[in-house]
Computed example of a mutant assay.
Amino acid sequence: MTTIRAFLFSVYLVVLTLVMGIGTIPIRLTGRRHAALRYAKLWSRLVLAGLTRICDIRIEVTGQEHLLHGPALIACQHQSFFDGFIWMNLVPRPAYIIKAELTRLPIVGPMLLLAGMIPVERHAGARALRGLMDATQSAFSDERQIIIFPEGTRGLPGEKQPLQPGIVALAKQSTAPVIPVATDSGRCWPRRGLMKYPGTIHVTIGTPLATANGRGALIAAITTAWDELNARPQASSSESRTADVL
């Protein structure tokens, strides 16, 4: 049954993306960024709704009181494609830092750019970092909440990966708070393959971190915060919230 559910969700995701892709045509023609972001939010909401209903996966989010409506740098663990959907409806004006290859995907790519996502060429060195810093500063000025995955790639649940230094450069150029977020999404939606496993995905949001103590201190603070958030007992259903994303 789990395999059948995973297959049905894959079909649902492809059909949904193709159908909604047609709907992007007038938005792309008019170039309306706010409309593109609203449309992306709807698409993400429908994807997660399908995930919960088809694959029997529950989503529990705790710590939403730490999220801000103004500029913020959200440093999230990254384990699966789920992490790319969840933030679209947890904050009002999300801007993901994404790998540039995603912007070259048919249908999806142009909308990512129009919705204000921030692409980065991961192998372009200092030039890429300068471009990233300029783009994020513009997003902060536009009151966006920037989502970054400091590990740089998807990892396994419980796996520790070195954090990339870009998070420090972005944190130092702005007064926006850095908000650590832990997740175990890879347990239900593995980083590779099509399988989806029934269960509960936990997204745990921590308190903002101090950013004025240098590179090593910030990276250590993020890593420590993730460890502490992952070690917390899971919240009861009355303490968690799912209405924001479904």
Rank of each mutant, 00 (worst) to 15 (best):
P94I: 06
A124C: 13
R241N: 03
R191V: 03
T223Y: 00
L37I: 09
G206M: 06
V245I: 15
R45G: 11
G23M: 15
L105Q: 04
P180C: 05
E101F: 13
F9A: 05
T17E: 08
A139S: 12
T136D: 05
I74S: 03
G152Q: 06
G199I: 04
I98M: 08
P92D: 07
V14D: 10
D83F: 04
R45E: 08
L209C: 06
R144F: 06
I97K: 03
P162A: 12
R5D: 01
A135Q: 14
L48M: 15
M20Q: 10
A35G: 02
P71G: 00
Q79T: 08
I107P: 04
V108P: 00
R32Y: 01
G21I: 03
E60H: 11
K41Y: 08
T24W: 15
L13R: 02
R33E: 13
P106R: 10
V14M: 14
V61Q: 02
G131M: 11
I57A: 10
D244F: 15
H123F: 06
E239A: 14
L46P: 00
A35M: 05
L105V: 13
A72H: 09
P26F: 15
T175W: 04
V61A: 00
V14T: 06
A243V: 11
L170K: 04
T62S: 15
A95K: 02
Q173I: 14
G152V: 05
H78T: 02
D83A: 07
L68F: 05
A6P: 08
L90E: 01
R154L: 08
F140H: 08
H69C: 07
Q164S: 00
G70C: 10
P119C: 07
E101I: 09
G152T: 03
F81C: 12
R127C: 00
T103A: 13
R32L: 07
L29G: 11
R45I: 15
G109R: 01
P106C: 09
T24R: 12
S44C: 02
L8D: 03
A176P: 07
Q137R: 13
G23N: 12
P150R: 05
I22A: 14
Q137W: 10
S238C: 07
I179W: 00
T103F: 01
L114F: 00
T175M: 04
P180S: 10
L194M: 11
L246P: 00
E151M: 11
F81V: 12
R5M: 12
Y39P: 07
P110R: 05
Q164N: 05
I98F: 04
R5A: 11
